[in-house]
């Protein structure tokens, strides 16, 4: 019980698992997004927010210690990105998750230091963005009724975990440290189950807050949704959807990397092969992976498009 707080496995990428190219690109993206989030938070929240965000980052960190037994020695955990997003809004949630993931890497070696950019991107940016879209979408559907909070909270938490795992599998596949056609179905399969725990805890927490401190839940509802958020979410969803078939059409990401940077190819001495001449019992995995990724991507994009359409319509009728 007194072990170092652990999020579900296969979420914090350690060092050595990402190629330097992937790690650097992830760092760049994270720096840009977190920098933007800092500006947004500084603009509309101000000085009051610094102590509050610090304490709430500590709350998320401590909340990850809370678990409940499921079966056979496994337990349900909380990552907390969805809960932070629902309670504090996306920008503050990005900063809080960035702090949590950074402390886990720097102090507890939960995730690597070079890989920290990727871990911030997945758990701080992807998870919060997905959670935000899903939660707001369900709320619009429910017409701001109370079931929208719990169902939205559950779905936001569950999907944020699942989509994050897709991203992690993609990053490993492109780095050549995990075969994409096996890693994606395995990672997604595991996290579809793990995500249920996250979803149940999130919904339970929202139910508790709904009964005791309703103001904390509804404080974010009145905030208008900025257009940049929608554009960013759309880009993220499209990017994931387009990346997965690209990556999965190469049974092994290394060939792709090797082609991109000649030195790796030379170092490995492996001739570039599009489809290596050997069989692996992966049950047509590239195709299956493509379809799976495509379905998820389409769902995401469809959801985003739906919300934008509704928002447009709402504005049109308001005018």
């Amino acid at each position: 019980m007194l072990s170092v707080p652990h999020a579900p496995p296969l979420m914090h990428i350690p060092d050595g698992f990402l190629s330097v190219a992937v790690a650097v690109v992830m760092w760049l993206v994270s720096v840009i997004v977190v920098g933007y989030a800092l500006r947004m938070v500084g603009k509309d929240l101000g000085e009051r927010q610094v102590p509050e965000m610090g304490v709430l980052a500590a709350v998320i960190f401590a909340g990850q210690m809370l678990n409940f037994p499921v079966a056979g020695g496994t337990s349900g955990h909380l990552i907390g990105a969805a809960l932070a997003t629902i309670l504090l809004g996306p920008w503050a949630a990005i900063i809080i998750m960035t702090c949590v993931v950074s402390v886990q890497a720097l102090i507890f070696q939960d995730g690597g230091i070079l890989a920290l950019g990727a871990n911030i991107f997945f758990m701080g940016v992807v998870a919060t963005t997905v959670a935000y879209f899903v939660y707001r979408t369900v709320q619009r559907f429910s017409g701001n009724k109370s079931w929208g909070i719990f169902v939205g909270g559950f779905l936001a938490a569950w999907l944020s975990v699942v989509v994050t795992s897709i991203g992690v599998a993609l990053a490993l596949g492109v780095s050549g440290t995990s075969p994409f056609n096996i890693a994606l179905p395995a990672m997604v399969g595991v996290h579809i189950v793990i995500g249920i725990g996250e979803g149940l805890i999130t919904a339970g927490a929202l139910a508790f807050l709904y009964a005791t401190r309703r103001d904390l839940i509804t404080s974010q509802d009145s905030k208008p949704v900025s257009r940049t958020v929608w554009v960013f979410g759309l880009a993220l969803a499209l990017g994931l959807a387009l990346l997965s078939p690209l990556a999965s059409s190469f049974p092994d990401g290394l060939e792709w990397v090797a082609e991109q940077s000649g030195f790796l190819e030379r170092a490995m001495g492996a001739p570039y092969q599009l489809i290596p001449d050997y069989t692996f019992p992966g049950v047509n995995s590239p195709e299956a992976a493509t379809i799976l990724a495509g379905v998820v991507g389409t769902l995401l994009v469809g959801g985003v498009a739906f919300v934008i359409a509704r928002a447009r319509k709402g504005r049109a009728t308001a005018n």
């Binding site: 809370l66 349900g76 927490a205 929202l206 139910a207």
Partner: peptide, 26 residues
């Protein structure tokens, strides 16, 4: 399992309330 998860969720919510209040005091 759902009941256990709900209890854990309540604990998490509780932790959040304490966090918010502590943040205000700080």
């Amino acid at each position: 399992i759902a009941w256990r998860a709900r209890v854990t969720g309540g604990m998490t919510g509780n932790l959040f309330v304490r966090g918010f209040d502590r943040g205000d005091r700080i």
